[in-house]
Write a protein that binds this DNA or RNA. Structure first.
Lengths: 177, 177
DNA sequence: ACAGTTTCGTTCGGATCCGAACGATTTATG
DNA sequence: CATAAATCGTTCGGATCCGAACGAAACTGT
């Protein structure tokens, strides 16, 4: 991750502490406390992996096309669903509607998508890709998908499927509220 | 996720499209393209799960104590490692050093940690928790860990371990650059 | 009909977030 | 020993990010 290109490294060039070092430090600090180690490790690794992947894909795939991660996700959602209401875009993209207003503004300024008022409900706003936006997605998606394959290359197809299944279960669990 | 409390829901109260609906829409849009579906699903679910967990824990655990997710992570790193240089905090927390300057400023203003110049190198800055910060972590960590257990409750211990292992492999793969 | 409620997208304040540029300091080199 | 190169934390501009508050529009019940 070149984001940390100027970060200090240990003598042997490592960026992070090793797993053993970290777990040892954690165990020392948590000594005597009742800790669910497996749940902690699961949650921490989900977040770290998500961050690592996001930063990597932003750099290698998105930045050359002047796209942020969120901009890409919004573009993706609109590409897949086409002519979608903004509140649904926010749900699918996983961002608040307040944030979406700004992101759509940015993408609209670049001519990648368009806003228009819903014909049956003047409160709602429909979003759709412009031809320029569609062309960008047709170009960029294969590149993005290839990068997705690269970052998960160390997992077998079965591993990836199991991974996705477990993560869906977590999301479903949290949504139970 | 009360973050979407005012989001539109379908007739049966669902927030998201179902998996089948989404996959059908994706398949239609991607028809004729060569797509690595498993890699795509893996990456998408990693990111969605991370976001879902973050938002949930921010709300239920962190917000009552006026902490952001990033603030919590930084506090955690300093708690575990104690008397650590800021550049290492940035690495462990997964944020840029520029961001860390602001976050540490916020936490320092609240009296949760302290900055001091490294005795052997005036460029470096050491960070450590204040007694108030340590007290907060002692109170908050058990609550946070219990919430981690809840969000992963649908997974067995073995599932969680396999999940963490797969995610570590992804991170290691990306770090190969 | 029509006042009260709900549901839209937008706006706002404040906190992150990044990369690039910057001064200050330390290390490397001739 | 003095100059160059590398490394540190900070600052800056611009884009997200959220929750709360807002006005507009649509719905609700009477």
């Amino acid at each position: 991750m070149s984001r940390y290109a100027d970060a200090a490294r240990d003598g042997d060039g490592r960026v992070h502490h090793t797993l053993a070092e970290t777990e040892s430090a954690v165990a020392e600090r948590l000594d005597g406390m009742s800790v669910d180690v497996e749940s902690m490790a699961a949650v921490q690794n989900i977040y770290r992996a998500a961050n690592t992947i996001r930063n990597h894909l932003e750099q290698t795939v998105l930045a050359p096309h002047d796209l942020t991660w969120t901009g890409w996700v919004v573009l993706w959602v609109v590409w897949i669903w086409g002519d979608i209401e903004t509140r649904h875009v926010a749900e699918e993209a996983g961002i608040s509607k307040g944030t979406l207003t700004g992101v759509i503004g940015t993408l609209e300024k670049r001519g990648l998508l368009l806003r228009r008022t819903h014909p049956d409900d003047a409160r709602r706003v429909l979003v759709a890709l412009t031809p320029k936006g569609r062309k960008l997605m047709n170009t960029l998606f294969p590149i993005f998908n290839a990068a997705e394959a690269r970052v998960t290359a160390s997992l077998s197809t079965t591993d990836k499927t199991h991974l996705a299944t477990s993560l869906r279960a977590v999301v479903a669990e949290v949504d139970e509220f």
